[in-house]
Design a protein around this nucleic acid. Structure first.
Lengths: 222, 222, 222, 222
DNA sequence: ACCGGCGGGACGCCCCGTTTCT
DNA sequence: AGAAACGGGGCGTCCCGCCGGT
C-alpha cells in the first residue's frame, strides 16, 4: 500500500475535525467541501473515498463534536465542581467567541433539524448521552428526574449562548450569559419536581403538558 | 405611472413575508433568492430595486418576523393568561412543526450570529422589545429584574424548542417540550433574585459572572 | 428590458443550434454545457433561464435537428429526383464526414434510447414525420405500406452510415455506402409486400414477425 | 506468487466482461471505471495493472463482444435455419430489451466512430468476420457478393434495432422489428446483383456510387 | 423614471480517469 | 498488487448588475 496502515483513518479523522469546526463556525450549509478539504491538506477528489456525501460528513462531524463535548463535560465537572463547573464552562465569554470549538448544539441546532434522519438520530444519541452525564451531577443523580432537569438546564444554556452570540452589543451579551448562569443554577438547585417520562403518548390532545401536576409540584418548593 | 401608488410597497412587503417564512423554514443561507422571488410572483430581476442585497433582505425579514412575534405575544397573554399563556403557546407541538411561521430566534439564531452588524442590531432591538413585553407579565413587572427573568425564560424556551425540533424521536420531542414548560414556569414563579444590569463593561476580565452574588441570590430561595 | 424583444428567442435558438451540432459530433453525454454555452457566445449562467436541464436541451436539440432533416428531405427529393435523391444524399461521403450537420438518428440513436421519455417521444414524432415524407416518394405513396417500406430503407441507411463512420478503412467505408445504396434502391423499387400494421398487440408471443404471412403477401405481387 | 497462475487472466477477463455489458447498456462515455471495477469485485486501483487506459478497455470490451456475437451467429444459423435464423434472432423483442447482452454494433456504433484508430480497427476486424460468416449463409456463399449482401442485411438490422429501442411506443417498436424482418428477408432472397469491391480507392471523386450500374442490376430482378 | 428581463461569473457537490508509492 | 489521493470538470444554481422598454 502506498500509505502505512492507519493512514486512511488518520486522514478521515482530520477531515472530520476540520469539518466539525467549520460547520460550527459558519454553518453546515455555508461550508463548502472544497474549503474543508483544502484545510485538511487534501484536494476535492479525496473526499468521496472517505464519505458518501456531504450529508454523511455532517453526520460524522456532528457525532464527533458531541463526543468531544461529552469528554469535556467530564473534565469540567471534576474536582467537586459538579454541575456548577459545567454551567460556568458553558456560559462564559470564551464560549461565545469560540463557536468553532464550542457546543455543536448551540452552533447548529436549527440546521440539525433540517438534516436527514440518520444525522438527527446521531444527534439525538449524543445529546442523550450528554444529558445523562449532566444529570449525574444533579441532586437526584441517576433518576429520570435528574435527566429531565438536566434537559431544562441544557436548553437554557443553549438558548442563552446563542442569544449572546447573536446580539451586537457585547455588554448585553455578557448580561445574557450572567442571567443564564443565575437561572441555570436556580434550576440546578431548586427542588422543583420533575414528572416521570409520560407514557400516555398522544393522550394529551393539544397541550403536551399536564398543567395541574406541574403546578402542584411547582408550588411544592415555593 | 404604470402601477398605482403603493404598489411597490406592497410588492416589497410580499417579498419580505415570503422570505421571512422561507428563511425560518430552510435557513437563510439555504434559501435562494430565485425561489423567494418566484413564490412572490416576480422574476429575479425585480429583487434589486427593492433590496440592496440578500443581506438586506435577511435583515428586513428578520425584523418583520420579530414584529409579528411581538404582536403574537400580546395576543397570547391576553385574558389573564399572562406568562403562562406565552409559554404554553411557545412550547407546543404545533410550534415544533411550524418553523416557518414560528419564532425567528428558534429558527435562525446561529445564523443571525453570523450576519452583518446591522442585521444583528435589528435582531437585538426586536429581541429586547420582546423580552420587555414578556417581562411585563412577570411578578416584578416593569423592573429590570423582570426583563432579566424574561431573558432566562426565553432562552430556555428557544433552546427547548430547537432541541425538540432536532431530535428524531417524536415522543422525546414532546418530553422536551414538557420539561421545558415545567422549568419555564418554575423560573417564572420562583423568587430567585435578579441582579441589576452590570455596568462594568469589560471590567470582569475572565469570568463574566460574579459567583458570590449569584450564589447568594441562589441560596436566597432555597 | 435590457435587450430588444425577440432577443431571448434568438439566443435560445442559437444555443439549440450549437448543441444540436455538438451532440451529433461528440455525443450528448460527452458534450458539456460549458462548451456549448461558450460556443454560443454566452457563459454558463445563461443556460438555465433557457432550459430546465441538459435533458431538456437534448430534447430540443434533437427535435430541431429532426425538423431540419425533414426540410432537407423535401429539398433532396425535388426536381423528380424522388427517393433516389434522398438515398443519394444520405449515403454519401460527405455525410460520413459531417456527422455534426448530418442525420441525428445516425449520430445519436443509441443515446436516444437512453434518454427520458419526453425526449424519446420527441424523437418518435420527428422520425414518423420523416418516414411519412420519405414514403411519399415510394410507389404506393400515401399508403401504410409506403411508410413501412420507408422505415426499412431508413433503417438500412442509418445502419450503413454508422458502420461507414465507424470503420477505420476509408475504402471499406465507401464500399459500405455503395452496398447500402444498392440495397436501399432495391428496397425502394422491389414490389416486396408490406403487411398492414399488426393490430394483434401481444398476440405473437415470442416471435414478433409472422413469417408465413409475409411470405404469402410477398409472393402475392411478385 | 500470491495468486495461482492464471489469476490475472481471469481477473482481466472478468473486467472485460463487466465492462462490455455496461458499455452496451449505458454507453462507453457514460460508464465509469469505478462502477465497472466495483461490479468486478475489485477496487479502482486494480484497473491500471490490467489496462493502460479506459480507451484500451473499450477496445478490449468491444472486441470481446464481437467475438461473442460471432459465436452466437454460428449457433443461430445451425440446424438449417440459415440466414433466417440469424435475422430472427437479431430482430426480436428480447434483443430490443437486452442491449447489455446484445449486439455491440447496435449499442455502440456512433460511439465507436468517435474512438481512437486502434479501437475502430478492432471493430472493423470483428465486423468483417461477422459479415463473412453471415455471408456464408447467403446464396452466393463464399463470393464477395455474399459478403456485400450480408453487409446490407446487417446494416438494416442494426438500424432497425436501434430505432426500435429508441422509440417510446412499444407497439411501434414491434412494427419496426417486423418491417425490418421483412426487408432483411427480402434482401437475403432477392437476386439483386452485387458489384465487386471497388479497388479504385479515391478514384471516385465526388459520387461514391455508380448510378447506372446499380440501376442496371436493380432492374435485373424486377 | 421606475421596473424587470436577461445575462455574468463563480461556486456548489459530486465523480471522473489517472498516478504514486508502500 | 492495490489503497490513497489528485486535479479537473460534470451539471446545477447561486447572487448580482446592466440597460431597454412602458
Amino acid at each position: 500500500m502506498r500509505f502505512e496502515k492507519g493512514h486512511k483513518e488518520t486522514t478521515r479523522k482530520r477531515i472530520i475535525d476540520v469539518a466539525s469546526r467549520r460547520f460550527r463556525k459558519d454553518g453546515a450549509a455555508a461550508s463548502g467541501l472544497a474549503g474543508i478539504m483544502a484545510e485538511s491538506g487534501l484536494t476535492n477528489g479525496a473526499f468521496y473515498p472517505h464519505f458518501a456525501s456531504k450529508q454523511a460528513l455532517i453526520k460524522e462531524a456532528l457525532a464527533s463534536a458531541l463526543v468531544d463535548k461529552l469528554d469535556k463535560l467530564e473534565h469540567d465537572t471534576e474536582d467537586g465542581r459538579g454541575i456548577e463547573g459545567a454551567i460556568r464552562e458553558y456560559l462564559n465569554r470564551e464560549h461565545v467567541r469560540d463557536s468553532e470549538g464550542g457546543c455543536p448544539s448551540a452552533a447548529l441546532l436549527p440546521e440539525i433539524a433540517r438534516q436527514s434522519k440518520p444525522a438527527r438520530k446521531a444527534y439525538e444519541d449524543g445529546l442523550l448521552a450528554y444529558l445523562s452525564k449532566l444529570g449525574e451531577h444533579l441532586p437526584e443523580s441517576g433518576s429520570k428526574a435528574s435527566v429531565r432537569r438536566a434537559t431544562a438546564i441544557f436548553s437554557l444554556m443553549v438558548g442563552a449562548l446563542q442569544i449572546a452570540r447573536a446580539v451586537q452589543d457585547k455588554a448585553l451579551a455578557e448580561d445574557i450569559l450572567e442571567v443564564g448562569m443565575e437561572a441555570a443554577l436556580t434550576l440546578a438547585r431548586s427542588r422543583y419536581a420533575a414528572v416521570g417520562r409520560a407514557s400516555q403518548k398522544g393522550s394529551a390532545s393539544s397541550s403536551p403538558c399536564q398543567g395541574p401536576r406541574i403546578r402542584k409540584s411547582a408550588t411544592k418548593h415555593e
